[in-house]
Structure formats: C-alpha cells, structure tokens
Design a protein around this nucleic acid. Sequence first.
DNA 1: GCCGCTATTGCGCTATGCGTAGTACTGTGC
DNA 2: GCACAGTACTACGCATAGCGCAATAGCGGC
Lengths: 108, 108
Amino acid sequence: MDSSQLLKGVLDLAVLAVLADRDSYGYDVVRRLREAGLEDVGDASVYGTLRRLFKAGALTSYVVASDEGPHRKYYGLNDVGRAQLASSATTWAAFAATMDDLLKELST
Amino acid sequence: MDSSQLLKGVLDLAVLAVLADRDSYGYDVVRRLREAGLEDVGDASVYGTLRRLFKAGALTSYVVASDEGPHRKYYGLNDVGRAQLASSATTWAAFAATMDDLLKELST
DNA sequence: GCCGCTATTGCGCTATGCGTAGTACTGTGC
DNA sequence: GCACAGTACTACGCATAGCGCAATAGCGGC
C-alpha cells in the first residue's frame, strides 16, 4: 500500500472509479475511460486490470447475454472494492498534491 | 510520449523538477525527493533514473570531490532535459486533471 | 460468404521501480 | 590503528504492469 503502487497502479483506481458509477463490462470500461480523457489506455490493460481486481476479491462478476454481440462479462464493486477505491483515491490525492508542489516550485 | 509513459514515468518528472532548481547528485536528489513528500522512493530507483536520463541526453554530468565522503557525480539539466521537463509537466497536469475529474464524480 | 463491430482471452515483450549486496571514501570514538 | 556509521555510487536480478498482437466468437449488413 505504499505510494509506489500508485506509480504504476493508477489504472486500478481509474477502473474502480468507473465501476463505482455503475456495473460495467470490459469493452464498456475501455470506452468510458477513453471518453473520460484516458485516450491511450489499451484494451488488454483494462481486461487485465479487471481480472486482477476480480482475482484480488475486489469485484463481483456475472455474465449477461447480449443481442448485439457476444456475451458480456459484467463487473461490479463489492465492499472490498469500495474500500480499495476509497483508500486508493486518498493516496492518489496526496501523491498528486506532492507532485504539484514539486512542479509549482519551477515557476518561483 | 503518450500518457502511458506517465503511468509509470512519474519519477523522471520528479527528478527533472528537482534538478531544475539546481544541479545535484544522486544521494542529494533522494534526500530532496523524500523531503518533498515522496518518502518511499528507493535510492536505486533514483540512481537508475539519473543514469537513464543522462544516457538519453537530457542531463549533463560532472564529478566533484567531496570532503565528507566519496566523490559526487553531479547532474544538471541541459536543453533537452528542460524541454522534457516542460512537456512532461504539461502531460502530468492534464493527466492529473483527468483523474481528478474521474474521482470527483464519485461524490455526485 | 465476407466484412465490420462487439466482446473476451492468451502470449510474450519491455520498462520500471525495488531490494540487496558490494565497493569505497571520510571522520569519530575506542 | 581499527571498527563503525554516514556518505555516495554501482551492479545484479526480480516482480509487475501496461502494451501489442493474434485468436476466437457472436451479431448484422451487403
């Protein structure tokens, strides 16, 4: 849980944040992240993150059939996920503030 | 130069920011980063980052003898480094703003 | 039947940050 | 004079994350 996790683990946070809004499936998570501004996220990264979070016990999962294509594997937050989201969000905020401080001194 | 670099490459930015203030050597960079709030940075990571940035042509380097220990390898920004700092800082700001937006929606 | 869109999985690559160990120089205390 | 702590750097190997790419598969339109 040190901030080093944050250095690479921002995707986890982003994915959790998206799922907090509502349950979603991989393809849709990718779309929503890109719409939110993370245009460079690879689909494989998101699928990997979802599987990792699920394996870590932070997500629920259920499959839903679709009329417009193959089945969709929905993911949703459970209590563990919500806790992780809250704690990661806090860590992120602190880290971002630290970085902003560091960069702010450039102008002075 | 996509934002994916940022996901892991924040250390580069932090190191460049510290060096922008004044020339410095590895051991000192570590100290200053920790004082700035990045308490968990490993020394090996910083040394590695410095060597990588130097190899990439973003830093100058010169050795200075010291009275209080072994020699110090000082690093300083050159034009390439300053350009990289500026561009990374911009990318970081955009990325951080995006993440903050994503997280802000949690409360609504 | 083929193409494009939706949707997921698997494999291998690379870079990064980290831990640990090792080298080496200085000043202090015994 | 030597062990030791603090300073300063290097080298080796590890784990992991995100990425690119290919494969699979269902659907609708031409």
